[in-house]
Design a protein around this nucleic acid. Structure first.
Length: 799
RNA sequence: GCGGGUAUGGCGGAAUGGCAGACGCGCCAGAUUUAGGAUCUGGUGUCCUUCGGCGUGCAGGUUCAAGUCCUGUUACCCGCACCA
């Protein structure tokens, strides 16, 4: 029988939709399974073959769980705010809302054509006013708890477009759109205090099941380090506070460095003799873009402060203070003690400026290079620390500094607060009002959502303000607090805002009184299994954990972590092994594959392509193998024979297959699950019982849902597969009675033979000795050792 | 520089320390077909005429046995980048 995938796939998709087959049950007593994939940004390009890799993988889990009796939430939605839509709107003068609507419609039909079992009743869109309302509501809670604040920040500014650029829009130091120079411009930005959660974001990783590389990346990104804050006295009178991770090396500190933006420069202005030189340096480093600073990383520059010197608290020696842009204001406290003998950067700087280098840990040659790998060394030239190990020295000196009131133990993080402002149109307006008298005031909740006004131009203004700043009738309002005239905040939120809590809205997407009901959240959360790309590890994944922890603290959600389990898929590369991109001309359109081979084949191929976690190149000719496999499974109908059970010939194969496929799906080893099914298919010749065929179709159903339903129906097995139960296996029946083992002599294979699975070592030895090839190799030798691994091999060691 | 990852046939990839190359693609041969395509059957790491030898980036080591464990090393990919 020929399989007509075009007609069959449409038929079942219609049945699933009309029958609401995959919708969730409101019965909160059933066991639940919440499967989540990252919702897409509905771009103008349509779906990419990369999307279905993740979606199909969790679709397989969702479908399997439903057959296992779970109430499954597997929702989909649209992360629809964002720059490409806005840029398209600017260029074509179409409202972003209309563009979004069109793109969403296209994406949705593409996803439905793949037979993904999403709960479309729970669909959400981050640009929907009813969604924006709750995004803004969460922001207001953060604001009220003091976790949102305003700060002067350097932003990327395109000198030609006269507008603020996101980091992603700055490529190689120039504007991605026009190629002009990008400089740093200081603007006032809304910030979220994610740093307040840094330690909890690290600690709580211990309680969740994330793949290890995600945990590692998040920890490295948060970048915890321990050390000491130390007060150096200065000849100017005030103490200069520095941060170091190596307080043990304090006797080696021969100078100090502060960042060019350090406030003490202004404070000491009247004492500094070379203020002109210092100002010139400050201006030069302010003008440098990030790109230039990186380019110049090798060449250390700086200016010595004349008129003020620091005093090392461990030996009271006076040392010079420099300003240099190798010290960043944004990490630690923008000031360091420099130990050139044991820090590469300090060493380079000291060599260039002719500063003394004092070895304080034995073992290196500090005249040649900085000796940094010295955790196991012994302290020298270090007064009270001499002879101690590095570890002992750290403890002793920290204690000493504390006793002297000159320092204390200190933890630092690389993580910075989250820049939350965008001077853009297509985002959630920040729901605040600025009043001369009251400052920034939160909008009352009754005024949410604060919607975007209609504007004529979506371009940012000349001075880099959001296009909203030009809409005076929208901007001008009254203070919710005192009623005086006031102005709305015109910045909008970044795209990350909507995706930081979307998994909560899925639980109860139409709720008007809360972001989701308590019952729905308590039932569905946490997400049981979240799959997504590695590129979101340190952005979306961290941001959403932060928001969730905040919502936990204010009692909105009941779990401290949003995701119980996180896995990650590899990228699908172009046929040439490079990343798929329009410019490389190696993009594969999923629509074309669905048209030519069918959705089931595409799904199966993407799961068979290789290890799910690793990237894999696309290969159009390999798809044929998957198509052939599905056609052959479908054709098994022609050789169907009676019998609801398994035939003697296939019984153990079937039990093993159920076990293998069940376990492989749970471990996301889809490729080997499919290989196992192919292998069993290859063993079938002549006939297959109804029972065997049923099991095959059930196991294959999550991968190829359309074809298996059609075959099930044509064979008259009764009902739909979606109403059946996942097959079970009997461990005892997975074992074969007779197994082939390899016989080795000194590790070299000499023979293969069939032995009973439960044969003893002695029995197998006897059988082996009877084999001619083995006997030949044993002749005249002494057997020293016999290793028998049941079911695998026998190794006879002789001398 | 730092962090993470990868390395196995012509290709994608399999292998709880236990028969390397499952499964698929491609290729070869045969069947079927007017022909092509499609389909089906068999073969397919490599060297040698055979016996057999050699093979998992490279060099060592542990073990009866190593793709797998240990030490060192190289190449490539991804992320971060003066983080004191």
């Amino acid at each position: 029988m020929k399989y007509d995938f075009k007609a069959v796939e449409k038929k079942w998709q219609k049945k699933w939709e009309e029958g609401k087959v995959f919708e969730v049950s409101k019965d909160y007593t059933k066991p639940k399974f919440y499967a989540l994939v990252e919702f897409p940004y509905p771009s103008g390009q349509g779906l990419h073959v990369g999307h279905p890799r993740s979606y199909t993988a969790l679709d397989i889990l969702a479908r399997k769980r439903r057959l296992q009796g779970y109430n499954v939430l597997y929702p989909m939605g649209w992360d629809a705010f964002g720059l490409p839509t806005e840029n398209f709107a600017i260029k074509n003068h179409i409202h972003p809302e209309i563009v979004t609507k069109q793109n969403v419609a296209r994406f949705k039909s593409q996803l439905q054509a793949l037979g993904l079992s999403f709960n479309w009743d729970n669909e959400i869109n981050t640009t929907d006013p009813n969604y924006v309302k709750w995004t803004q509501w969460i922001f207001l809670q953060l604001f009220k708890k003091g976790l949102a604040y305003k700060k002067e920040m350097a932003v990327n500014w395109c000198t030609s477009c006269k507008c603020v650029l996101a980091n992603e829009e700055v490529v190689g130091g120039v504007c991605e759109r026009c190629g002009s120079e990008v400089i740093r411009k200081v603007k006032s930005q809304w910030m979220l205090k994610i740093t307040e959660y840094a330690q909890r974001l690290i600690d709580d990783l211990d309680g969740v099941d994330y793949i290890e590389r995600v945990k590692t990346s998040q920890k490295n990104w948060i970048g915890r380090s321990t050390g000491a804050e130390v007060d150096f006295s200065t000849t100017a009178g005030d103490d200069l506070k520095i941060y170091t991770t190596r307080p043990d090396t304090m006797y080696g500190a021969t100078y100090m460095v502060i960042s060019p933006e350090h406030p003490y420069i202004e404070k000491w202005a009247d004492k500094l003799e070379n203020m002109d030189e210092i100002r010139a340096y400050q201006e030069a480093s302010a003008r440098k873009s990030d790109f230039e600073r990186t380019e110049m990383a090798k060449d250390k520059t700086g200016v010595m402060l004349k008129g003020v010197r620091g005093i090392n608290p461990v030996n009271n020696e006076e040392i010079p203070i420099f300003i240099s842009d190798y010290v960043l204001m944004s990490y630690g406290i923008g000031a360091i003690m420099a130990v050139p003998a044991h820090d590469t950067r300090d060493w380079e700087f000291a060599k260039k400026f002719g500063l003394p280098i004092i070895e304080v840990v034995k073992g290196g040659n500090v005249e040649e290079e900085a000796f940094t790998d010295c955790a196991t060394g012994e302290m020298v030239n270090s007064g009270i620390l001499n002879g101690l190990s590095v570890q002992e020295a750290i403890e002793k000196i920290t204690q000493f500094l504390e006793e002297q009131g000159k320092g204390k133990f200190k933890v630092n993080y690389k993580l910075r607060d989250w820049v939350f402002s965008r001077q853009r149109y297509w985002g959630e307006p920040i729901p605040l009002v600025y009043c001369e008298k009251c400052g920034y005031v939160a909008l009352p909740e009754s005024e949410l959502p604060l919607c975007l006004p209609n504007v004529e131009s979506y371009e940012p203004t000349d001075d880099g303000e959001s296009p909203l700043a030009n809409i005076t009738e929208w901007v001008n309002t009254t203070c919710p607090c005192c009623g005086a005239p006031a102005r709305r905040e015109t910045d909008t939120m970044p795209q990350w805002a909507g995706s930081s809590w979307y998994f909560l809205r899925y639980c109860d997407p139409t709720n008007n009184d809360a972001l989701a009901s308590k019952e729905a959240l308590d039932y569905w959360m946490p997400v049981d299994w979240y799959n997504g790309g590695m590129e979101h590890t340190t952005l979306h994944l961290l941001y959403s954990r932060f928001w969730h922890k905040f919502l936990y603290d204010i009692g909105v959600v009941s779990t401290p972590e949003p995701y119980a389990k996180r896995t990650s898929h590899g990228m699908i590369l172009g046929e040439n092994g490079e990343k798929m991109s329009k410019s490389r001309g190696n993009v594969v359109n999923p629509d074309d594959i669905v048209n030519e081979y069918g959705a089931d084949t595409l799904r199966l191929y993407e799961m068979f392509i290789g290890d799910f976690e690793k990237s894999a190149p696309w290969n159009t000719s390999s798809i044929k193998g998957c198509k052939r496999f599905l056609d052959r499974i479908f054709s098994l109908q022609d050789i169907l024979v009676d019998g609801e059970g398994y035939s003697a010939k296939l019984e153990s194969s079937m039990h093993k297959l159920v076990k293998k496929v069940s376990e492989d799906i749970e471990n996301m080893k889809y490729n080997t699950a499919i290989a196992a099914m192919m292998s069993v298919l290859n063993d079938i010749n002549g006939s297959i019982t109804r029972g065997e065929y049923k099991t095959m179709l059930l196991l294959l159903n999550p991968f190829a849902p359309h074809m298996t339903e059609e075959a099930w129906e044509l064979c008259g097995f009764g009902g739909a597969i979606t109403d059946q139960s996942w097959p079970v296996y009997d461990e005892a029946k997975c074992k074969e009675a007779v197994v082939e083992i390899a016989v080795q002599v000194n590790g070299k294979i000499k023979a293969r033979m069939d032995v009973p699975a439960d044969a003893t070592k002695e029995a197998v030895m006897e059988l082996a000795a009877a084999d001619a090839a083995v006997a030949e190799n044993l002749a005249g030798k002494t057997v020293v050792k016999e290793i028998y691994v049941p079911g695998k091999l026998l190794n006879i060691v002789v001398r």
